[in-house]
Design a binder for these strands. Structure first.
Lengths: 205, 205
DNA sequence: ACCTGAACACCGTTCAAGT
DNA sequence: ACCTGAACACCGTTCAAGT
């Protein structure tokens, strides 16, 4: 008789969530390449074959982490943009800061999300989730175009420019290729704002 | 007696270059995570222990590939910018196209270069090489600032904006997150040009 | 229904031993 | 000086067998 809220011995309670949680920890300390299903199983206190009852394979478990990451990032962007009553320009800047923040604070998840290492299985993947960041930007841009502060161009085009630039900054920061000390949050924030302002106001005179 | 231009049997000729060459092929078909030293050895026709005479470990071999990638990319950018006698704006656009082209045509190398998977060993790595792309852009920007067509801002700031945006575009393309069919070169080129133009001319009216 | 243990074909790395 | 083969501690995945 198994129930009674996670009984004395292992039949487990609910593995699956324990696996996802453990996978997050393993990913954090080993990185995407060093990530091992056997270690996740050990962390969760089950045999190395047990995870296969809950995930088709290693890639499926990583996908779960990836999806969660996309949702977190989307939320972070929207929260930043809706924070205070800004004009579209300021919203765009705050969204950029949030984007880069997420990346720098979750480098391994970010690599997993955008590295293309995990093959996006055609099956049960909703690719629109991965594009949530872009869509949040699109909303801001649309507002700016409508109220006339942005150029009269297709919003998708402008949103791509904004996405592209904050994504590049995030990726360079994660890769450690920015001259800035990435751990100094103040300096990084100012860098992000400077880049975003330049994107908004352009490079030419 | 070993010499006489790579004699009959294996003492090898010059392994090391054979390893680098084989490693490129293995990386191409297996990706950074699937990349295995034992397979490289097999491809080169030697025992799985032989590579250790020439590279400290697996990471060192990958580093060699990474360095080569940075040099290739830098060259591609400079070639594109110097191609025809452009003004700085056009140079920037052509450099962007070259950057994204390199990424899309060498996705695994690009991931290796910018993924941060290989720990940059403090030792014999010249990190400036990795930044060659940025410096090529800096040259173009400097020219634009001096002749007065770009804004009167620190060239490093403007170059970071340009780098950031083309890098982001390249990374999104490699990750397969652009709505565009990445194999349609024409469409991708136009997308790159559109983004670069927007960066140059800004988003606001 | 959920988990285990053994098994298979792979890894990276080291080290004595061969030429 | 350069390479091999065996050995060790790891992998992912499968499958019969246990509760």
């Amino acid at each position: 008789m198994p129930p009674e809220h996670a009984v004395g011995r292992y039949h487990h309670g609910d593995l699956r969530n324990a696996l996802i949680e453990g996978a997050g920890r393993v990913l954090l300390e080993k990185g995407t390449c060093g990530f091992s299903l056997r270690e996740v199983a050990k962390v969760a206190g089950v045999s190395h074959a047990a995870p296969y009852r809950h995930f088709r394979d290693k890639a499926a478990l990583l996908q779960a982490l990836r999806q969660a990451g996309f949702e977190q990032l989307g939320l972070a962007i929207r929260t930043a943009a809706d924070g205070k009553p800004h004009n579209p320009e300021q919203k765009l800047i705050e969204a950029s800061v949030a984007y880069v923040h997420f990346a720098v604070q979750n480098p391994e998840i970010t690599r997993l999300m955008f590295g293309g290492t995990v093959e996006l299985q055609e099956n049960d993947v909703r690719p629109d989730v991965s594009v949530t960041a872009y869509e949040s930007l699109l909303d801001i841009i649309q507002e700016g175009v409508e109220q006339g502060s942005f150029r009269q161009r297709p919003p998708q085009e402008l949103a791509l420019v904004a996405w592209t630039s904050m994504h590049g900054l995030a990726m360079l920061a994660v890769a450690g290729l920015l001259a800035v000390e990435a751990n100094d949050e103040r300096v990084l924030d100012e860098l992000v704002r400077a880049v975003a302002r330049n994107v908004i106001y352009g490079i030419v005179k």
